[in-house]
Simulated assay, not measured.
Amino acid sequence: MQDILDIQESGGIARLTLNRPQRLNALNPALASALREYFQGLYRRHEVRVVILLGAGASFCAGLDLKEQRPGSELGTVGMMAVQQSIRDIMLAMRRCPQPIISVIQGAASGGGFALALASDIRLGTPDARMNASFIRVGLTGCDMGVSYFLPRMVGSSVAAEYLLTGRFMDAQRAYGLGLFSRVAPLDELQGEAQALAGDMLRTTPLGLRLTKEALGHSIDAASLDAVVAMEDRQQVLCTQSDDFREGMQAFLEKRPPRYSGT
């Protein structure tokens, strides 16, 4: 039996592939648990520096697998809250882990798949990629799993309302025009681009990369420019105390690639 989450780690890069192609990689309890546990486990794994998130087959992730979800009326309020938290914790872990996450999105990214895409740091999409907040089309609200947090901050309140209030699909060209996708291209090209982006990230210092993701996340909610600049000041001073900073400066002066040690 194939792993429902295929994990390949090599050279500082983790490639995670949602591996339920026969169900369009819909999130059943087992896949949700595997994703949550993996991302939560990354918090202190310094050997993994970048994550590439992919979906096997025709689609990235079609959302929650409704065929394996018991009706809420059977579970009750307490039971459904546990289910809700078990899935939303994936997105919280993705934002809290210090490793940048690059998602390659083809086909459908609906509901929970949309949330996975938005919780990533960089999104690359194929021309057939389609994303939507499908929750509102099955008797729920359009706000779930962090989508109503991420989307307005990324595209503005009017565009976010357009998609969250209707459940309409956003195609790849609209996503690219709104800045949600960094690039639109065939799948094989995007997989190469994801690897190239990860390679560029690996050429930074481990500390600098982690702190940059942290600062980008906190800056979204910062109360003022002064608060952001104060955080940046402290991060930069912290980096200057590392051996890697001294190596980076020396390599720049000597016009050679730096050899970072992670210290």
Rank of each mutant, 00 (worst) to 15 (best):
I122T: 10
S33K: 11
T204K: 10
R20I: 03
D188L: 06
S219N: 03
T141G: 14
R210G: 02
D188V: 01
S182N: 01
M154W: 05
F245E: 04
I87D: 01
G113C: 10
C97R: 06
P71I: 13
R183G: 00
A119W: 03
A119D: 07
A222H: 10
I7F: 04
L225V: 13
T240E: 11
G57K: 12
L187G: 05
Q69C: 05
G167F: 03
D65T: 09
T205M: 11
R23F: 00
Q22M: 00
L24F: 09
A172E: 07
E214A: 13
L202K: 09
E193N: 02
L164Q: 00
S242K: 11
A215P: 06
A223Q: 13
A34E: 12
N132T: 04
C61I: 05
A215M: 15
P127R: 09
L18M: 15
F60K: 12
A196K: 15
M94A: 03
S134V: 12
A196V: 02
V138K: 03
D65H: 10
D244W: 04
L140A: 14
T126Y: 02
D200I: 10
F114S: 14
Q241R: 15
T126H: 00
N132D: 11
T141Y: 01
L124S: 09
P258G: 11
G11Q: 11
V83N: 09
L190G: 06
Y38W: 05
R95M: 02
S261C: 12
G57I: 01
Y260P: 11
M94K: 14
A62P: 11
I87C: 06
L66E: 15
A117D: 12
A119K: 04
E214V: 04
A198K: 02
D221P: 06
Y38K: 11
C97F: 03
P257A: 07
V104G: 02
L64G: 08
G199D: 15
A230H: 09
K255S: 15
V147M: 14
F150P: 01
R70T: 10
A222G: 08
H46G: 07
L35I: 07
A14T: 03
L92E: 12
S261Q: 15
E214S: 15
I136E: 13
G199T: 13
G113L: 10
A30K: 14
C61K: 05
R15D: 12
P29R: 05
G146P: 09
R49C: 09
T126S: 08
D121T: 05
D89C: 10
I13A: 01
Q85V: 02
P21I: 02
